[in-house]
Design a protein around this nucleic acid. Sequence first.
DNA 1: AGCCAGGCTACCG
DNA 2: CGGTAGCATGGC
Length: 218
Amino acid sequence: MRVNVYRDIYLPLWQAHGPQGWWPLLSLADKRMMDQGRYTGYHSGCYDFPRTEEERFEICVGAILTQNTAWINVEKALRKLSESALLTPSAIFEAPHEQLSDLIRPSGYYNVKSRKLREFSSFFQRLQGHEPSREQLLSVWGVGEETADSILLYAYKKTEMVVDAYTKRILASFGLVDPGMKYQEVKTICQCDLPRDLAVYQEFHALMVAEGKNSSMA
DNA sequence: AGCCAGGCTACCG
DNA sequence: CGGTAGCATGGC
């Protein structure tokens, strides 16, 4: 019988790891835990986020900073931005490159990411609170397919599956995808077996990462 | 002490 | 088109 993504992958991972409560937010984090290198900004079992436009923007910034980067380092950068009152679109857009790149240094690629954040901040301001389309997001310099879908799924609660390196690796281990398969193809494979439900989509992606992280394969 | 992390762009053939 | 160098820090 053919592997079913929901029955054979999602449900077992849910049983193993439980609800992940993505996307993590600074406002929900315990600073003492964070100082020990443990991130605690999750909200397991609650999908009523973001609650404010500030939280929405924070998710977008995190989505850009986490490109090919461990979350622990993104968290440091986010906290620095927040402490310097630079976690708003206008502040980031107006900040000098030197200051911005210095604050986000821990998340790596700080010169490129500094530009990406400025470009995105400009875009976000122009939205005037409206929801961006996937196409609009992709038109922003520094936003690719995965980042666009992360923003749509977690910041705007759209049922768009996020496909990352872990997802491809895990689905490949089930023989569902070939290495080198395009983003959209993998996305379609995930979405066709999963109920079109926000919580399921968010948890599926988060569970992929949880599973991918603790099984240090390759 | 390497290896690698929740990618994307630019440029090459 | 597909393939790949470049970007960079910090944790394990």
